[in-house]
């Protein structure tokens, strides 16, 4: 079984984002780039499955659409333990464009399980995984919090609004992962960092595809009113404010 983990390259989650060029572009000065938290967890789960000989996972490949500046993030994924990687050398214009590029390569290279995070912490799209599946005409299971391989076949748990289901679908399919898929992200060992340098990263030029959407400007959320402090000895005052001023209870 060949597993593909799609990774997004995002600003560290503590970043206070700022914009430049009349708020049309992210100010990348000083930003620390990391593997999107969900993708880090799905990579971890893929590697755990590979470690378990009975699961029969032959390889874990990492996929990314982005310019060469994303290379350190890809190397980090290799250092954590992925076997190889490919990068489509293009600006990730929108989810549709990214999914179209990934689907093109996946169609050629043939993977059995394709893991995507439920969202990327930059554009909060929640789209790439489902789009890849539709481009390839294969099933997708969303909001997956666990994946196991039983007798060579994947069994996943998907979270629903108000419960969970144990689901099976025939491979190949796209797994869209969320919380629970792995406990802690795996970190790179010294040896991992050394071997990552020589692991293969295939670089493909993009195929001709058009994005369907375009961001024209970014806005910061409107500042909230300053905090009103209430005497801790008289918290009943808070309840009165919530009722009469905020009118939320």
């Amino acid at each position: 079984m060949k597993i593909l983990v799609c990774i997004s390259n995002v600003p560290d989650t503590t970043t206070k984002v700022k914009f430049v060029e009349s708020d049309t572009k992210l100010d990348t000065a000083g930003i620390q780039w990391v593997i999107n938290p969900w993708d880090e967890l799905s990579l971890t789960r893929a590697l755990e499955l590979k470690d378990d000989a009975s699961a029969g996972v032959k390889s874990v490949t990492v996929a990314h659409v982005g310019p060469a500046t994303a290379e350190p993030t890809i190397r980090k994924a290799l250092a954590i333990g992925a076997d190889d990687a490919f990068r489509v050398n293009a600006e990730p214009a929108d989810s549709y464009y990214v999914a179209a590029q990934l689907a093109e390569v996946i169609g050629r290279e043939q993977y059995d399980l394709i893991l995507c995070g439920i969202e990327s912490s930059d554009y909060n799209g929640s789209m790439t995984g489902g789009m890849i599946a539709e481009f390839l005409g294969i099933p997708s299971v969303s909001a997956v919090s666990d994946i196991k391989i039983e007798n060579g076949a994947p069994i996943v748990i998907r979270e629903t609004d108000g419960g969970r289901e144990v689901v099976s679908v025939p491979m190949p399919f796209v797994v869209i992962v969320q919380k629970g898929i792995a406990k802690e992200p795996r970190i790179a060992s010294m040896r991992g960092i050394m071997t990552a340098r020589t692991k293969p990263v295939r670089i493909y030029e993009p195929s001709a595809k058009e994005p369907l959407t375009r961001i024209t400007v970014f806005e910061k959320p409107s500042p909230r009113a300053a905090c009103k402090f209430i005497d801790p000895e008289n918290p009943g005052q808070l309840i009165a404010l919530l009722q009469n001023e905020a009118k939320v209870i």
């Binding site: 989810s95 489902g130 609004d161 369907l212």
Partner: peptide, 22 residues
């Protein structure tokens, strides 16, 4: 929501319809 996130992106590709989430 969970179901919307599962279905809408596929629909976007199926109809070649640009999508905005959230």
């Amino acid at each position: 929501n969970t179901e919307g996130k599962a279905v809408a992106p596929r629909l976007s590709v199926r109809l070649k319809a640009g999508m905005a989430s959230g």
